Amino acid sequence: MSQLNIKLFPTLAAHLDDLVAWEQQADVGEFILANSKEQHLNSMEEPTIQYLSVFQNEQLAGFIILALESETIVEFRRIVIGQRGAGIGQLAIQAMEQYCLEHYACQRIWLDVFDFNERGQHIYRKLGYREFKRCRHGEHQLLFFEKHF
């Protein structure tokens, strides 16, 4: 996986068409609550929301959305990768963690994932995230994971 050369950069508005299209894919849309381009543009203007574009070998490959809760706590709100199954997402998450440590003096990153997203849960556990809470969301459960640094 290391040959993938993953880098993160603040997302540009020009990237949003790709990001919205990736969110609409059937195998992505079932795991997230997709946003319109306008919703993403509005979110990007929020001072506590950070959009990061994931580049693999200089090509746009996905994106990450973070919500800054405090000086030391970051909510890992979303990751969407255009081509799944190649390990890009795992490397992007590791790059995101490093980004948070460097830019926010982060001590804790947390996220939520639907109970039926077994692949996501597997990856988060593999990367050292631990479940700390569950709650109902409609007919499903949301599982909350965290990682301390």
Results as ranks from 00 to 15, higher is better:
I6F: 03
E75Q: 09
D27V: 00
F144L: 10
G138Q: 15
E139C: 09
F31V: 00
P47F: 02
D27P: 00
L142F: 09
E139G: 08
A92K: 00
I32H: 06
I6S: 02
L8Q: 07
K147R: 11
N5S: 13
L4R: 13
F63C: 03
I109A: 08
H122A: 14
A26E: 08
L111A: 11
M44Q: 09
Q121D: 02
F76V: 02
G89A: 10
R125F: 08
W110Y: 14
H137S: 14
Y51Q: 09
Q59G: 11
Y124F: 03
L52A: 01
T72H: 12
F63K: 00
Y104W: 09
Y124L: 00
E30D: 04
D115T: 10
L142R: 09
L60E: 11
I81C: 08
S43F: 11
A14V: 08
R136A: 07
K37F: 05
V20H: 11
F144Q: 10
I109T: 03
L101A: 15
T11P: 05
Q50S: 14
L8V: 04
R78C: 05
E97K: 06
R130G: 10
E146V: 12
M44T: 06
I73L: 04
H15N: 12
C100N: 04
F76Y: 03
R134W: 14
H15F: 15
I32W: 02
L111N: 03
N35A: 06
G85F: 04
T72F: 13
Y124M: 01
F9H: 14
I88L: 03
G120M: 04
Q94T: 11
V54H: 02
F31E: 00
G29I: 11
L16S: 06
L4Y: 13
Q83G: 07
I73V: 07
H122R: 05
Q107F: 12
I79H: 06
N35G: 10
I79L: 12
Y124T: 00
V80I: 06
A105Q: 14
T11V: 10
F149W: 11
H148T: 11
Q50F: 03
R136D: 08
H122M: 07
V113S: 06
Q83T: 07
A14P: 01
L12H: 04
F31M: 01
